[in-house]
Amino acid sequence: MTSTFQLTHVLPTGVVFAVEPWWVQIIKGVIIALIGFTLIPAAVTIERKLLGRFQHRYGPNRAGPYGTLQAGADILKLLGKENFRPSTSGGFLFYLAPMLAVIAAVATFAIVPLGDVVTIFGQKVGLYGLDVGIGPLYAFALGSIAFYGLVLGGFASGSKYSYLGAMRAAAQLISYEVAMGLALVGVIMQTGSLSLVDIVHYQQTHLWFCIPQAVGFLIFVIASMAETNRAPFDLVEADSEIVAGYMTEYGGGGFASFYAAEYLNMVVAGAIATTVFLGGWTIPFWDGAPPVLGPFVVLIKTMLFVVFFVWIRATLPRLRYDQLMSFGWKILLPLATLNALVTAIVVVAS
């Protein structure tokens, strides 16, 4: 499948498809980054409220109507705190680590297609940050950089708990990113393109990939829970065993950054799952939907994933370390490989 866009840039990261002049891209980039940062308090609020409801309580309900301002109040509180660093912490890496985590999370959000190409004031604008020709690879690459943030944070803290958390993060990344990548291979083979926009275009005319690629969908969702350190795979943080893992020694802004990155990663994982498996901005049984609705549809679907992640967190206990490893290597990876293999056979045969 070839891209329908006329103008292409060839960057070192791959072919980037774009329809807008550079200044539109800058405006668009700023807006999308702001959307990303707005989704963090939204995700935090959803998580805290919903987790409360799952446990027979209300969750935060004091700050603002229904506690909606709680996340903002928490952010202000954290930013107002003293920027403490332990005497054992090492060098500028201690400050670099939370920045890396946030940058990687926001940068991943850039490739999430929020909508099709629309015409705003006579100017063609694609409702996404970038349409890179290496879509999922870009997401995985930045996901790995986010893990650098975790590992460096744990390493530079100079604390045993942080170091343990960092080591767990590294091991978990290796175990689950492979399965996550292989889960997407089936979709990519069926679409014939690595561009996330093309994958959504394909789903406009075909069934959503969550049905023909159900196994891949399941593996992707499970692996993305591990990837974003969510329960039941949150033994990177494991507040009850290793305090908070790599975050133990961080307070104030550094902690806020890690926290924000964690929730943004959750949103991004949901958004990518939406794009790849749930048809992105398409609405079922309504082909003539106005493209302006696109971003809302994508955000609603993404938030459904966030709700699902919270639901899982309310349900499942944390896995033991060896259970995590054996689940990743003995079950998810063979299953993902088999899924890719079967899809390959089907694609070639048909």
Binding site: L50, R53, F54, Q55, H56, T315, L316
Partner: peptide, 21 residues
């Protein structure tokens, strides 16, 4: 068992909070 657990927690969600404000 995971599905059963999800059903259980969803039941708690439907029941609503028992908190006294």
């Amino acid at each position: 068992e995971t599905l059963r657990g999800l059903k259980t927690t969803f039941g708690r969600l439907v029941e609503g909070p028992t908190t006294v404000q």
